[in-house]
C-alpha cells in the first residue's frame, strides 16, 4: 500500500482533487437546463441530471451499460442538429470507453458537449480512487483525441466561460469539471430504461 502510494505521488500531485461541489457547480453551468438534451452516465451524474432537470424529460440517464453515455450523445447530436446535446458523465464512466472521444472528434458535431464531472473516484461503489486521482488527465486525452475545444474548470470564476461554450460553441467541446468527492443530490429517478426512452421521445416531440 505504502509503495503504491509513493509510486503515484508525483502523478497525484499533478491532478489535485477538486474543490468545487457538484451540487453547486452544475446549476451554475446550466442555468436553463431546458435548453439542452442530456445523456447522463450512471450513478452520480444520473442524479445530478435528474435534480437539474426536475419534472422535464429532456434527459436520458443510464443505470448500467457503463461507458455508453458519450456514444449515445453522439448519435443524438447527429440525429438532432437543431438541438444542443450535453453528455454529463463521470470520470469512471468516461474512462470505460474513452476511445469514444476520438470517434466524436472525427465527426465534430457542433451541437455536442461532453461534460465530465471528475471527482477522482468511483463514488457509487465506495469512493475508490479512479485513474484521474492517480495522474490521468482527461482534458489532455480529449485534446489528444482531437476535440477542438476543451476546458478544465477548477474554480468558480471559470464556470461562466464553460457555460457560454456549452451554450453557443461552434464545435464539439469537452469540459472537465474538477469536483470534490462528495455525494450527488439525493433524488429518486426511474430505473426503467424503456419507460425513460418513451418519456424522452415524447418530451422531445413536445418541443417541436
Amino acid at each position: 500500500m505504502a509503495d503504491s502510494q509513493s509510486g503515484n505521488g508525483r502523478a497525484a500531485a499533478m491532478s489535485p482533487v477538486g474543490v468545487l461541489d457538484r451540487r453547486e457547480v452544475l446549476p451554475k453551468l446550466f442555468p436553463n437546463p431546458k435548453d439542452y438534451l442530456f445523456i447522463a452516465g450512471l450513478a452520480g451524474t444520473a442524479k445530478d441530471t435528474a435534480a437539474l432537470c426536475g419534472d422535464d424529460r429532456n434527459y436520458y440517464c443510464l443505470a448500467g451499460v457503463m461507458g455508453a453515455a458519450a456514444s449515445m450523445g453522439l448519435g443524438l447530436a447527429l440525429a438532432r442538429p437543431d438541438k444542443r446535446v450535453v453528455v454529463l458523465t463521470g470520470d469512471g464512466e468516461l474512462l470505460m470507453n474513452v476511445g469514444t472521444l476520438a470517434t466524436i472528434a472525427v465527426l465534430n458535431p457542433p451541437n455536442l458537449s461532453i461534460v465530465c464531472v471528475d471527482n477522482g473516484h468511483y463514488g457509487e461503489t465506495g469512493y475508490q480512487k479512479s485513474h484521474t486521482s492517480l495522474g490521468v488527465d482527461l482534458e489532455a486525452m480529449a485534446t489528444g483525441a482531437g476535440i477542438p475545444v476543451t476546458r478544465t474548470v477548477t474554480e468558480d470564476g471559470q464556470i461562466a466561460d464553460a457555460a457560454e461554450l456549452i451554450r453557443s460553441g461552434n464545435s464539439s467541446s469537452f469540459i472537465l469539471l474538477k469536483v470534490k468527492p462528495t455525494d450527488p443530490p439525493k433524488v429518486r429517478r426511474s430505473l426503467d430504461a424503456a419507460l425513460s426512452r418513451l418519456q424522452f421521445i415524447e418530451g422531445l416531440a413536445a418541443t417541436r
Partner: peptide, 16 residues
Amino acid sequence: EEEGVGLLAGAHLGGA
C-alpha cells in the same frame, strides 16, 4: 463496436 450500440440508441432517441 459497442460504441455503435450506444450511437444508434442515441440516434433513435433523436428520431434517426
